[in-house]
Structures are given as C-alpha cells and as structure tokens.
Amino acid sequence: MSTTAPGAGRWDGISFEERMATVDFRVGARAHITVDTDVCRSCTTKACVTACPADLFAPTADGGILFNYEECFECGTCYMVCNSEGALTWTYPDGGHGVVFHHG
C-alpha cells in the first residue's frame, strides 16, 4: 500500500475558466469597476493581481493592468488592497445584475 493519500499528488485540477464557469454572472451593460492602467504602471505591489479571487486583473507587458468586469464577485478585495489613489473606481453593478450565488 502506498502512503500517499488517494488523490494527493495526482493531477486532477480544473482550469480557472472551468472554476469561474460554475458561477452565475448576470452581466450588466455598465462596467461597475474601472481600472486606470496609467496609474497601475507605477504600482510596485500589483496587490490586486494576487488577491482578486476571480483573477480579473491581468498584468500587461507595459506594466499596466487589463481588467474585465464581467466575472466579478463584487467582494471589494481589490479596492481594499490597492494603495494607489485613483487607480480604481468601484461601484456595485446595477440592481439585479452581476454575480448571483446559488450556494452561498
């Protein structure tokens, strides 16, 4: 008998897209969060890239940030960890739009 627990070490991951596809997002017409990539270019921490649970902050080659608002949990992590004034505008999506949790 092996000492490895069943499943451990075995490659059984799911892709991040697959993970996000389990969530119901009712995407609104308005981007409820916007990112000013010019401000981000001078940001050294890129805290949002690590912390955003939906992995929506994509660093670009020129040091900026590419952001898509569609698959957002509206959790608030990004504006809390971002230390750069003016990098983010953060609002809730219009009523009835955005994430809908079925198993929260």
Binding site: G7, I14, T22, V23, C75, T77, H102
Partner: peptide
C-alpha cells in the same frame, strides 16, 4: 474524493 465543484465563491 470524487467530489466535483458546484460553485466557487468569495466574500470579505
């Protein structure tokens, strides 16, 4: 073991 993801979620 064998359990599959039904929903992923995050909150502060």
């Amino acid at each position: 073991r064998g359990a599959s993801l039904r929903e992923y979620a995050a909150h502060l």
